[in-house]
Design a protein around this nucleic acid. Structure first.
Lengths: 353, 353
DNA sequence: GCAGGTTACGTGACCGCTCACAGCACCGCC
DNA sequence: GGCGGTGCTGTGAGCGGTCACGTAACCTGC
């Protein structure tokens, strides 16, 4: 009003940080808020970070100004100075088919996203199946784009396990120690497997086979639990090692088991998906479940309720695993002490055994 | 060597930007690379962004220096000035159970992550089921943390559809127009549904029911395709509307259909998961598939191969949908023109029909 | 021999935030 | 009255990049 040229004047006030060009940039900045609230940028920053040493009056003014300007912090600017990104990487080092196949991953992913969100962290999903992708993930993670890493079923040979173990970045693995020095959150696989095996024994089953899956995290423990209960009765030919936790692998394993021991009367599969495959194959062979052969699964994933008959299985508290993983990781990010956690499982009896 | 104090000297050269304190910070900076390569920061920056106007000698020196220092760009610093984040949000606005239930989402997610990775973009997964989450997503997306949004099965009422349509941020929806002005990538649902229905007719089926699912993206189109072929023969009692694409909904719908029309001899389910539920219910009712009742699905997802009998279905090119979504979105991000795309489907004949 | 263009390179001035520091008012206390 | 807190606020100096400019070297062509 006072000066006709004041809004169009290119930059007559190099000292006032961008005062006159607000609104043509992407969103209002901290300076805009400060100006509206009639305080300095420092005070606004203080409000943003906990509001210590801010007078009630200033606090109110700033909060009001934030609302009227529609201010949102620029995370890039903040990260640049704090060296924190408020993001974590969810790294899937399995061959991709796993995410695709296993409903457990979806649960994990969903719960982690949610738990992180509640703490205002975001989840960056990264695949690591090809060599190219591995490089990209490595660069990304090392580049400080994330504050921590959630490792999903990483194998011991994973290239940056070494990095992470060396403390380059906080990390927590799912399911089992990914490497020395990397904390993990897992279900008590071995104890759960014992429970299921014991249950089958208690049901009067005599020839109890197992479809194990040693290449996958948790697999060896589940097999160990089975052997704990059966001891020397765990005949070699009653144990088949599946390639992965897939329906197809379950079908193949069951066929093998039937060929080796036609008199089998129970089967414990190391995952529900394997169990579902086993049930299909048993039906195809003319056997009734559970009358002729009882089938026990592991996970209590969605499909346990969809098989025919519904699956007796060991419930793995995956939602809790996810939450605990996030909890451990964020503690580490904040440099608080945190260590591995083991979560209890639970037998869920349905119709298959 | 020349001066005993030179490495520990606090900061005697305020003019040379951080020259002496490299290595105690998180990773080397562009200045470190410049120093090692014997060039200026500007030249290194040019190498980073396409290497125009850089001499072969300098280029080599810089590349070498990057390797020896182990340099990785600081995306925050870069984003701060370019206002680009090289990240996109994958927003799931369904109630969470969907991700959990539907194998299609996994495929979409996996392929999007991969396609984005190839362009050096990262994928931030965001859930939007509770009101809190919706706010968070809104703030996040508006805050310039991402360059674009991949909308997964958004309903028309979604709160930031409005924002996105107004061009606040590039966005592309999956499956169908999420709102006016938002481009989408979808399969030709209607045409696919026509094909399946026609196939069932050609097989000599007379009473062809449909398990539709109108609340879900693509659902209405599939029902329309069914009606296109059957015309007035599409009796009201032969059509059931399921609540969602779940196994349980398939079971329930099939039961309803059987009650209304016991003489039904074929069923077209709007998704494989629904079809799987239908098969289970048909078996339970004592009917044989396909002898008594033929079952057709839609999607050609993983489960189509796992049902008993394997499912005849309409293949939806989901991997391609994902790739095209990313392609369209990145074009929009680069301010290139791009528009909606429709992808062809394909009939896959297996044993169920 | 010099105008003119092209290529190569260095130099500030930012981007929007945080953080340390300095300043100031106000208090109580010897 | 001087002195040390304590509470609140403003300010300058970065964080690590990019980008517009200025400049210098070199080639060309008249």
């Amino acid at each position: 009003m006072a000066d006709a040229t004041d809004t169009t004047d290119p930059s007559p006030h190099p000292k006032s940080r961008g005062a006159a060009r607000r609104a043509l940039r992407r969103g209002p900045t901290i300076d805009d808020v400060a100006e509206v609230a009639g305080v300095s940028r420092g005070t606004v920053s203080r409000v943003l970070n906990g509001a210590h040493y801010v007078s009630p009056g200033a606090l109110k003014a700033v909060e009001q100004a934030m609302r009227t300007t529609g201010y949102t912090v620029n995370q890039s600017a903040r990260s640049l100075v704090t060296k924190q990104s408020n993001a974590i990487a969810f790294v899937l080092s399995e061959p991709q088919e796993r995410l695709f196949e296993d409903p457990n991953f979806s649960v994990l992913l969903r719960c982690c996203t949610q738990a992180l969100g509640e703490q205002d962290f975001s989840l960056v999903l990264m695949l690591e199946s090809s060599a190219d992708e591995r490089d990209r993930v490595l660069r990304y993670v090392r580049g400080g784009h994330v504050d921590g890493v959630l490792l999903i079923s990483a194998h011991a040979g994973d290239p940056f396990i070494g990095d992470l173990a060396r403390g380059v970045l906080p990390a927590v693995a799912c399911g089992r120690p990914a490497g020395p020095g990397i904390p993990y959150v897992a279900a008590e696989d071995r104890q759960g497997a014992r429970e299921m095996t014991q249950y089958l024994v208690d049901q009067g089953r005599r020839r109890i086979g197992m479809i194990a899956c040693s290449p996958v995290v948790g697999g060896p423990e589940r097999l160990a639990g089975y052997r704990d209960v059966l001891g020397r009765k765990a005949l070699k030919r009653l144990v088949v090692d599946a390639a992965d936790y897939s329906h197809a692998a379950g079908v193949a394993a069951m066929r093998e088991l039937l060929a080796a021991s036609p008199d089998i009367d129970a089967v414990f599969a190391a995952s529900d998906l394997l169990a579902a495959g086993a049930i299909d194959e048993l039906r195809r062979s003319g056997r009734r479940v559970p009358d002729d052969v009882a089938v026990g699964g592991f996970d209590d994933s969605r499909i346990a309720r969809e098989t025919d008959p519904p699956l007796t299985t060991i419930r793995q508290p995956l939602e809790q695993v996810a939450r605990e993983m996030v909890d451990v990781l964020l503690r580490l990010v904040r440099r608080e002490p945190a260590s591995s956690r083991l979560l209890p499982t639970e037998l869920v009896v349905r119709a298959s055994a």
